[in-house]
């Protein structure tokens, strides 16, 4: 059964059509990428799944319809988003940001375990746990944003452009962390403007164009696709 099944959804911002009949599917345990030019609807897709924008159409998670649910209910079911531009609580410390990630949870033991996992995954966060998060570097802030999302106990983790604004070296480190999280058993939906990073990392990729899926397939094959090469790699 599909873990996530987005069926022919539309999202409108006023009169502008952001998503126009978009469908994607994820199997449990997959690592799937979503790429596409600015304005193709990548972020809107994640916002629709998280129910922070009104959606026309149906979205199913683990067999249950979720597009009619509230954002906090969806998070409680295990669909967690690490949003675009990190969106940290910049006046809170690193530790407080992580603590807020566990806002909906009551299982103290599980929270402690996940906190230890995040600190092991990103040791720099453990070193800086008392530091105000607004003063972290871009890469550290991204680690914190991912860590916070992990503390919400995701089964499906959606990341929106985690590599934005990071240096090539930090990107490489980030990619390794994403792989490690995925190997830990979390299904990952990775939205990226860096097509190279996304195609290199994921099993399958959806390429969005004008609010719908333009191309989809195994990431390796897409990388060899002439059209994809022309659009995404020759120009960069």
């Amino acid at each position: 059964m599909n873990l996530l099944d987005v069926r022919d959804i539309k999202v409108l911002y006023g009169k502008a059509i952001a998503l126009n009949g978009l469908s994607i599917r994820l199997q449990p345990g997959e690592l799937v990428g979503v790429v596409g030019p600015n304005g193709a609807g990548k972020t809107t897709l994640l916002r629709a799944i998280s129910a922070v924008v009104p959606v026309l159409g149906e979205i199913y998670y683990d067999g249950q319809r979720i597009d009619t649910k509230a954002p906090h209910e969806i998070i409680r079911m295990g669909v967690v988003q690490c949003p675009e531009r990190r969106q940290l609580f910049t006046e809170f410390t690193v530790a407080e940001n992580l603590e807020m990630g566990a806002f909906l949870r009551k299982d103290k033991e599980g929270i402690r375990r996940d906190l230890a996992y995040v600190y092991a995954l990103f040791p720099v966060l453990a070193e800086r746990r008392r530091q105000i998060s607004g003063t972290l570097s871009g890469g550290e802030q991204q680690m914190l944003a991912i860590g916070r999302a992990l503390l919400s106990k995701p089964r499906l983790l959606m990341m929106d452009e985690p590599s934005m604004g990071l240096s090539p070296l930090v990107k490489k480190h980030l990619a390794a962390s994403i792989l490690e999280i995925w190997k830990g058993g979390i299904t990952v939906l990775l939205v990226e403007q860096d097509a190279h990073l996304a195609l290199g990392l994921t099993q399958r990729t959806y390429i969005l164009e004008h609010g719908k899926v333009g191309l989809e397939g195994e990431s390796q094959r897409l990388m060899a696709n002439e059209e994809v090469k022309r659009v995404y790699f020759q120009l960069t």
């Binding site: 906090h72 949003p83 807020m100 806002f103 916070r148 999302a149």
Partner: peptide, 23 residues
């Protein structure tokens, strides 16, 4: 307190608060 911090969290970043499940 957790509830108190959620007030502060909304004040700092309402979007982020929604993404951690605060209403």
């Amino acid at each position: 307190t957790k509830t108190g911090k959620s007030i502060s969290a909304v004040a700092q970043n309402r979007q982020a608060a929604i993404y951690v499940g605060i209403q």
